[in-house]
Nucleic acid binder design. Structure first.
Length: 817
DNA sequence: ATTCGCAAAGTTTTT
DNA sequence: CTTTGCGAAT
């Protein structure tokens, strides 16, 4: 009855030196009883692990050991002799899947438990049941760019002119429909939404095109599987039988299609375990349906609900901030989260003069911590709302020599050359793939232009045949220039040729494609520097292929390779082993944790995003997004914003995020490093009229304590350059941080900033860290007077408040020490 | 047909 | 500020 369980992770807890124990285990001399799996678990966690039969809802707050529970649950099932083939664990992202796989592997190695993303699970089911939904087993998976191209192709073929909407908008709406299981036949335009009328006209044609090309978009992966299960009772029954134990992670982010699939697979064997947290639902815009989790109990009678409310990740300070914030959501079930962790450092809210200062200070802080050996780069993480905000950080991190990695995904696989090479493979795998053909028929240039392509398309369309087939008969097409026709035929032959040779490893095949297509030669012959880089990228793809081959030694697996490249992106492989600071959006931070977290650009119109402001529900989603960000932090959290941010090439003064007022004022450290000094930047004065006027407006309308929700009402922490604050003292608590941050920033910076550092009277600003030979480190609380009479009021860390005439004092910016 | 250049437009989040 | 798109020149 008792099965052998190999469990080094747990053994380590019992013994100082685990090596001998592991060896004994490996040799089979000792067993670890299943009960030992429970050693680390709390009562609630234990319940969740042990409840194997029947529906289970695990409401898991942030940092509550959810992954621990899920992985142990799987181990426990295996220990209870449930065949691994019957267990499916679905995650939302590849990153989460990787993490889970690694941890399951450590508990119970080499078990064929199906573990991966929902989309991938569906992709593989579709391989087997492709013909049920009108696809070839070798169907192609289109990414968003491909989908847009497909749509464009459809629009052109139907001579449909878009006047106001972009293909992207239409694709988005179609995506929304598919996520809600709305097929072209069911789709109805919605009054007051012009876009939906356009979609009503093209959705069907788009879908037809996809089927004709034997291709699917991301949403189809779910939609097709959902209809497969709905329309084929026998298939559904078999799959329900096969996948008897399903675990679904991040249930709050599932959409209707995913819900339908899960239900269909959990009918005869309702052993569905869902984990999730309504407070972390952040994908509503993509069709995620919060009702799925809120109504789980209704949907699955007899469900057992386990709440994991204890947080093992964050300090008390961080958790209180998170809790206070999320309490502002009205559409929410109350939930308590608590921790027995220590108090920790206060959460900092810092307002920098400019976005550049923000990025540089954070980079400098990290550089300093790393240089001191206090932390490693991977201990930190920087979050922002939109990818567009990453650039400032990239340059600041580069400037300070801090290694970083952009956790953005796509990039590599979206490059033209990579897409092109992969399109050749797609075409080999699926000759009906029109989008792939269009992408490569003239790559490298073969003298096939727009007009000839239009003729080819028309011809194919009229006969209802794939483009590749049409290309074979190119000569027969009316009005087709001889040269183009010949080029098309040669192209078709090349593809067929390659197709015949398409055996062996992917790397080998890729090599054939590069040579056979003439693309490699074209890149080599090219003078352009860009092409040289492309060649390099193609080489990298060869490396990817080689690695894939290594992982799949038995099968050639072209399909599998294409599936992987479609559903996995390059930074999914990013791991904390890599000593780099990850920069990422708040969305991609979900499920991760870091000792030190910086949440940046917490400004109105960014967080909450301007497009979320009208709708209260999406405003709450933005708040949850902030909540997710906050709860990633284990030890230190800094929330920051800038008075001025250059965005989209424009200079803007910002408004602090309304969410900042919702943070518990007494618990956080607020630091306002002051406004940017106009004279420091000549472009400020010369900037276009609009911006200048706006700036002036902001200045006048912003009394000392107004611009910042974060400043405390006495105006002690915040002030503006133009309006010296009342003489109230800064809270000493903020001094260290402010000083620390500015000091590091200024001192670590190279000559670039030297001119900004010259010690004339104008160099001093409110909030600036300064040193004095007698009094030590301090922060400027107020400034008054001009020229020689310029006077600074300084709060010193150790010796209280002093006032100086700057010119006659020994006051220095902290940097100059 | 291709390439080069300039203008315009656009940017939430992800599988 | 970047990327995309379109139009003109070769």
């Amino acid at each position: 009855m008792t099965k052998f369980v190999f469990c080094p992770e747990l053994i380590r807890l019992y013994t100082q030196n685990s090596a001998p124990v592991i060896e004994l285990l490996a040799l089979g001399y000792i067993d670890v009883m299943p009960s030992h799996l429970d050693a680390r678990l709390t009562e609630a966690q234990r319940q969740a692990v042990h409840q194997i039969q029947g529906p289970l809802l695990i409401l898991a707050g942030p940092g509550s050991g959810k992954t621990l529970v899920v992985t142990h649950r799987i181990a426990h099932m295996l220990a209870e002799s449930i065949p691994a083939e019957q267990i499916v664990a679905l995650t939302f992202t590849n990153k989460a899947a990787e993490e889970m796989r690694a941890r399951v592997e450590r508990l119970v190695p080499d078990q064929p438990v199906w573990l991966g993303t929902f989309h991938r699970f569906c992709a593989q089911l579709l391989r087997r049941y492709a013909q049920f939904v009108g696809l070839d087993p070798g169907y192609t998976i289109y990414d968003t760019a491909d989908s847009k191209n497909a749509l464009q192709h459809v629009l052109e073929a139907n001579r449909f002119e878009l006047e106001i909407f972009t293909p992207g908008q239409i694709i988005n709406e179609i995506s929304w429909a598919k996520n809600n299981l709305i097929t072209p036949a069911d789709y109805e335009p919605r009054v007051g939404k012009p876009l939906t009328y356009v979609v009503a006209e093209v959705y069907e044609a788009y879908q037809k095109q996809l089927l004709q090309s034997s291709a699917v978009d991301f949403d189809d992966l779910l939609l097709h599987v959902a209809s497969l299960l709905r329309e084929n009772a026998e298939v559904r029954r078999q799959l329900d039988e096969r996948f008897r134990y399903i675990l679904i992670d991040e249930y709050q982010d599932t959409n209707l299609a995913q819900y339908a699939i899960l239900r269909a697979l959990s009918f005869d064997h309702p052993n569905l375990a869902a984990t999730g947290d309504p407070d972390q639902s952040i994908f509503g815009w993509r069709g995620a349906n919060l009702n799925n989790i809120l109504e789980f109990e209704k949907d699955f009678p007899g469900v057992r609900v386990v709440r994991l409310e204890q947080n093992y990740r964050s300090t008390k300070q961080i958790l209180r901030v998170a809790d206070a914030l999320i309490a502002n959501n009205v559409l929410r079930k109350h939930k308590t989260i608590f921790t027995e962790n220590g108090e920790g450092r206060a959460v900092r809210v810092v307002c920098y003069p400019t976005a550049k200062d923000e990025a540089e200070n954070i980079a400098a802080y990290i550089a300093n911590q790393v240089a001191q050996g206090r932390r490693r780069p991977s201990d930190f993480a920087v979050f922002y709302r939109t990818n567009a905000l990453s650039r400032t950080f990239e340059s600041a991190f580069a400037e300070f020599g801090v290694p970083y990695i952009l956790v953005k995904g796509v990039e590599f696989y979206q490059r033209k050359e990579i897409k092109a090479v992969l399109a050749y493979l797609q075409l080999l795998n699926n000759p009906r793939d029109d989008v792939a053909l269009l992408r490569v028929i003239n790559t490298p240039p073969r003298g096939i232009g727009k007009k000839s392509l239009a003729r080819l398309t028309e011809f194919a369309h009229a006969r209802g045949i794939p483009l590749l087939e049409a290309a074979v008969d190119a000569k027969a097409i009316d009005g087709m220039p001889k040269r183009a026709a010949a080029a098309m035929q040669t192209f078709a032959e090349t593809v067929q040729d390659l197709s015949a040779k398409a055996t062996g490893t992917i790397e080998h095949l890729l090599g054939l494609v590069l040579t056979g297509s003439g693309y490699r030669e074209h890149l080599l012959a090219s003078e352009a520097e860009a092409d040289e880089e492309r060649l390099g990228n193609v080489e990298e793809l060869l490396t990817v292929a080689r690695q894939f081959d290594g992982r799949h030694p038995d099968e050639p697996g072209l399909e599998a390779f294409l599936e992987e490249t479609a559903l996995v992106n390059d930074t999914d492989a990013w791991s904390e082993q890599v000593e780099r600071v990850p920069l990422m959006t708040l969305h991609s931070a979900k499920g991760l944790e870091f000792p030190v977290v910086f949440i940046t650009a917490v400004e109105d119109k960014l967080l909450p995003h301007e497009r979320s402001r009208e709708d209260p529900a999406s405003l709450e989603e933005e708040r949850r997004l902030f909540f997710v960000g906050i709860t990633r932090a284990k030890e230190e959290l800094q929330i920051s914003l800038a008075h001025r941010r250059d965005f989209r090439g424009r200079r803007r003064f910002t408004v602090p995020s309304p969410f900042l007022t919702e943070l518990p004022r007494d618990e956080i450290e607020v630091v306002d490093l002051g406004w940017p000094a106009p004279q420091e930047d000549e472009s400020y004065a010369e900037s276009e009229f609009e911006a200048t006027e706006h700036a002036v407006e902001e200045y006048d309308e912003a009394p000392p304590d107004e611009p910042s929700a974060i400043s405390d009402p006495q105006g002690s922490a915040a002030s503006t350059k133009t309006s010296p604050p009342p003489g109230t003292a800064d809270p000493l608590a903020t001094l260290t941080t402010a000083a620390e941050l500015s000091a590091i920033s200024a001192s670590d910076k190279s000559d670039a900033s030297a001119k900004a550092r010259k010690t004339d009277v104008e160099a001093f600003q409110i909030g600036m860290a300064v040193t004095h030979p007698d009094y030590g480190l301090g922060k400027i609380a107020a400034l008054s007077g001009n020229g020689p009479k310029r006077t600074a009021t300084v709060n010193f860390v150790t010796s209280g408040q002093r006032t100086f005439r700057i010119q006659h004092s020994d006051l220095r910016p902290a940097a100059a020490q």
